[in-house]
Amino acid sequence: MTHVTDPAESTTTPAPAPGIWRRMRLWGVAHAVDDLYQGLVPAAVPYFVLDRHYSYVAASGLTLAATLGSSVPQPFVGVAVDRLALRWLAAAGVTLAGLGLGLSGLMPSYAAVWCLILLSGLGVAMFHPAAGKAARESAGDSAAAMSVFAAGGSVGFFLAPALATPALIAWGVGSTALFIPPAVLTAFALLRHQRRRPAPAPVGGPAGGQDRWRPFAVLTCVEVVRSVAFFGVNTFIELYWIRHLHASRLLAGAALTFFLAGGVGGTLLGGRLADRLGMVRTVQIGAALVLPMLGGLLLAPGSVVPLLFAVLTGVALNLPFAVLVKLGQDYLPTRPGTAAGVTLGLAVSVGGLLAPVLGLVADAHGPRGALAALCVVPPIALALGLMLPEPRR
């Protein structure tokens, strides 16, 4: 069912005060550094295979360690963040994420590498709920301000292979140690910022602070479905360019870059749209746009014209990303850390865990078949989006 908005309610959100942007930039940079370590795992795994002669099964085990560490604990960390005063947890999380990933390339045994990457994932899990709660407190009721925080994660994931690949080629897996300093510096900046500012009162959410679990469950399903599509395109877009469009590896890499860059832009644009049109409407618009953009990517002629649709697909898929984070916290106003842990962590990771199903489709029908199979996802996301109510003012 669709939600009929009360005429007395306004979907337009006032512009945030200038000081908010400074604080949100800090949280956006911190999110970028934290998610940099998530992106470094898939960038570094091939070099563990080359330098340490790991099998493909062992290599996939490292990816599994990162996913388990970052996804499973996040809802529990979110509960702890909501119940206890853990303002230091975001700084501790980004530090652990950096140390775990950075030291992994220096360890000789596979067991030690696996455990360190698991700990790095745990650091990511510690960061997201605490940072999501603190960022929301700083952003107030502005989805545009919250989109700065959300876009930071997309930027970090986007930059990871570009920063890591030259170092890994030049110095091997031991070069992971070069990525420890950003985590330490970021943690120092967060602790300094939080010492200077008193803990703000919670903002936003329904009147009376009543948690609404039913729409939050629907929202979580929307995020899982969106994540399946994002991970699917992220996994197979380069192979589609190489094996179906017969393009060069350089052009295939450009397609992935354009897709991820479009995701960053879509995250920021979604926040602006949500402040003007409403959060639920923005989620619905994003879901409605994915199918024509993905269809254009598959049907456009040549290997250059589809690059435009690679960008637009990234924009459409990420248009609701920051909105879903903020909307989840509005549905659970007394549990903003739990909401952030689910929307930023668990739901996103579940989408990644379902990616092997698309791998089976690709084995049978090629990468184009896997991307074509994703066309069933946007209508599901749109149908779920039509069930979401606007948060109460």
Rank of each mutant, 00 (worst) to 15 (best):
R249M: 15
V280Q: 11
G271W: 05
L308Q: 05
R335N: 04
V280C: 06
L332N: 06
T257R: 13
N318I: 00
V350R: 01
P320G: 03
P356Q: 12
L294R: 03
P301H: 13
G341R: 09
H244F: 14
H246K: 13
V280L: 09
A254K: 03
L299Y: 10
L358P: 07
L273K: 00
A254F: 11
G286R: 00
Y331H: 01
L308W: 09
T338C: 00
L250H: 15
P301I: 12
A339G: 02
A310Y: 02
V323N: 08
E238Y: 12
L269F: 13
L327Y: 04
L250I: 09
F258Y: 11
L291N: 09
R335A: 10
R281F: 05
L250R: 13
L312D: 01
L260K: 10
V304A: 02
G296Q: 01
V264G: 10
L319D: 02
N318G: 00
A274R: 05
P356K: 13
A322L: 13
A274L: 05
F258E: 07
L245N: 04
P292T: 03
L256A: 11
G266Y: 09
A322V: 05
A261Y: 03
L317V: 10
T338F: 15
G278T: 04
W241C: 09
T257L: 14
T257G: 14
A254Q: 13
V305R: 11
E238Q: 15
P301D: 09
R249A: 15
A355M: 14
V315H: 09
F259W: 11
A355D: 10
V350P: 00
V323D: 06
H244L: 12
M293Q: 02
Y240Q: 10
G302L: 01
L299E: 09
R249W: 13
G345H: 11
G262W: 05
H244Y: 15
A247P: 05
A261T: 10
L354E: 02
R281C: 01
G351P: 13
V348H: 14
F321G: 00
A252Q: 08
P292K: 05
G352Y: 04
T343F: 08
I285G: 01
V325R: 01
A300G: 06
